[in-house]
Amino acid sequence: MAVSSPHLPPILSPLQLKTPLNLNTRLNLSPFFKISSKATPTIRRSSVIIASSGSKDAMSSQEKLELFERYGLDPNDFLSEPSVKRKRRKDRGQEMGKGKQPVVEVVRKPPRTTHKLLQVLGGKAKRKKLLSPVGMDVRPMMEVVKGAAFDILQVAGGCPASLRPGRWLDLYSGTASVGIEALSRGCSEVHFVEMDPWVVSNVLQPNLQWTGFLDFSVIHTVTVENFLERAQQFVGGDTTFDYISVTPPYMKVDYGILMHQISDSSLVGEDTFIVVEYPLGTDMLDSCGCLMKIADRRFGRTHLAIYGPKWAMKKKKKG
């Protein structure tokens, strides 16, 4: 603390306060100051810094409080205000959004829609248009591939005009165009396996209603893997099918594993035909369980393989 008067130089005390001293005031310069006077001295208080942050003898917060209490001073009167630079830095940080939680923008996908680009190629529902989703979420079998597949099956089955009556299993159904084509050409019942509920309710079922085949259809809204593992539970009774179509999304399946799962299941019988659509560069086996590959066609980047019983291969050669 500094005590000043017109005739005496400033004297520092432990609190480093500058206080004007009246000439009539008696001063005791002991280690701790004591000011006494008959007249009340005028004391002008200013901001006091007990110790700077860079000082080696810096006092702790508790020591500062004890020192203020010892001399009957209010600590709030001596707290230094934040510097102008610090205040500006804080304001600038608030303007720039510091300390605020980041705002996560949710990108909403546009609503899914459908259009009518497909059609039934033959049979009872020939030339009827079918719905399909807009975009690449569902990739229907190309009509040229579908037409070739059914032509091969009809010839191999010994009835070029139509399919042999039987049950069809349509794996990865999507638009149901393959299964509907089978019903239109003579199949008695088709089981559709499609995992996407939106496709089932907005594409597959409307197509079955439009073509009049809803009563001859069974829809399983599950994954193909789940269906193959629990075929007995889903189908019940006789699980063997006369025809099985496999049209998966190209890049999302391992064809080797998938074909082994199908051939090892109870879905395949000795007289079953299996239609497989696969991409260019995929190696397909010459047999699938007890069935032989009776056809393998290429349509651009798309390949079509058909497996069937040995007797169908002989009929195909004769035809």
Results as ranks from 00 to 15, higher is better:
134 V>R: 08
222 V>P: 02
154 Q>Y: 05
216 F>M: 08
231 A>F: 05
206 P>H: 10
227 F>L: 04
203 V>S: 04
228 L>Q: 03
183 L>M: 10
223 T>I: 00
190 V>I: 07
158 G>E: 08
145 V>R: 00
146 K>S: 15
241 F>P: 01
194 E>K: 11
144 V>A: 13
211 T>K: 00
208 L>C: 12
153 L>N: 02
190 V>W: 14
212 G>P: 05
250 Y>S: 14
208 L>G: 14
133 P>V: 14
224 V>T: 06
199 V>E: 04
231 A>T: 13
222 V>D: 03
246 V>S: 09
194 E>F: 09
239 T>M: 12
146 K>C: 14
230 R>F: 01
251 M>C: 08
239 T>C: 15
157 G>H: 05
184 S>P: 04
244 I>M: 04
162 S>P: 01
247 T>R: 06
135 G>K: 10
225 E>N: 15
228 L>W: 04
238 D>F: 06
192 F>E: 06
142 M>V: 05
165 P>V: 12
146 K>Y: 09
225 E>C: 10
232 Q>K: 04
160 P>E: 14
200 V>D: 13
185 R>M: 01
141 M>D: 09
210 W>M: 03
229 E>P: 00
251 M>T: 13
146 K>I: 05
195 M>G: 06
222 V>I: 10
178 V>A: 12
206 P>R: 04
153 L>I: 06
223 T>E: 11
222 V>H: 04
236 G>V: 07
154 Q>D: 02
249 P>C: 04
137 D>I: 13
173 S>E: 02
180 I>R: 08
239 T>S: 11
187 C>A: 10
185 R>V: 02
152 I>F: 05
164 R>F: 05
134 V>M: 13
173 S>L: 01
133 P>H: 12
175 T>M: 00
165 P>D: 13
164 R>S: 13
208 L>E: 15
140 P>H: 09
